[in-house]
Amino acid sequence: MTNPILSIRDLTVEIPTRHGILRPVDGVSYDIGRGEILGVVGESGAGKSMAGNAVIGLLSPPARIAQGEIHVNGTRIDQLKGEAMRRLRGKEIGMVFQDPLTSLNPLLRIGDQLTETILAHLDISRAEAEQRAIRALDEVGIPGARERINSYPHEFSGGMRQRVVIALALCAEPSLIIAEEPTTALDVSVQAQIIALLKQLCHQRGTAVMLITHDMGVIAEAADRVAVMYAGKLVELGPVRDVLTTPRHPYTHGLMGSTPLASRGKDRLHQIPGAMPRLDALPSGCAFHPRCPYVQDKCKADPGPTLADGGGEAACFFPLSQDAKVA
């Protein structure tokens, strides 16, 4: 990809514990281009959130980046500390979290929160910033933005609050947005609204989005490309249509099969046996091998190929052929 907004190379996050060093993120590489939405999907413990936190420098100690590089707009950011990192967040990287209540200060009017954020990152006058704040609220579809700017977070409904959070993330016009489970706390109907909004705004502005979620449906609706994580490793990366319809990695294949769908009728759900291994008890070889229906001796000994960025390939010795179709 030429000049990606976000570029992660061989990122490894380590947590030293008394049982040894855990690697919640292990050698992950991917790029996100301008105006692209990359869905990062995986089950709990797959390391998808940890990768997001590493990018925004919000790893809580003792977790640390042990290896690899993170570039945003060509600048290396994984070694930035304190003030420099703080300035970068908000200016270059916006964040949307699962629970809108925790990302808004309950004691401040939303207008003030927006203006403060704009003033902190852009060199404009307060009046201008206020105009921008109103425009930002307008853009995320909050009716009566001029009046609502004086409201407190608790005066909004859940969906509206998440819109405010998106406005807050976008108001300093960052080039990258990290959205972590932005719709998980919302009802189905509101979820559809928020996804549509996020997609529309980012495509308009050319913002790159890292959409972290466990929900395959959200990925299918919103993402351009998808990165599938399992036990800290990237197992599959590719255009969303290819990955979802013709998954190459057995894990993705199983995951797709076990997702209940309106169109799938009343037959028994496909299930992957077992559960994701705990990080302190990773199996030898490929981490998926104890659950894999196609496991061979080689998989038990060798951790398997690592994904280089770019191809729609899978980190698997024996990727499924492209005619292994999924609904």
């Binding site: 109907s189 979820q191 929900d215 959200v218 299918a220 969303v240 249509r241 979802l244």
Partner: peptide, 23 residues
Amino acid sequence: MLLAAAPKLDEFGREVPPPKGEI
């Protein structure tokens, strides 16, 4: 509305207008 809003795995990047309003 519920059925229409539920995410589907086979409609990539569909651009249907989302449902209006909240509960």
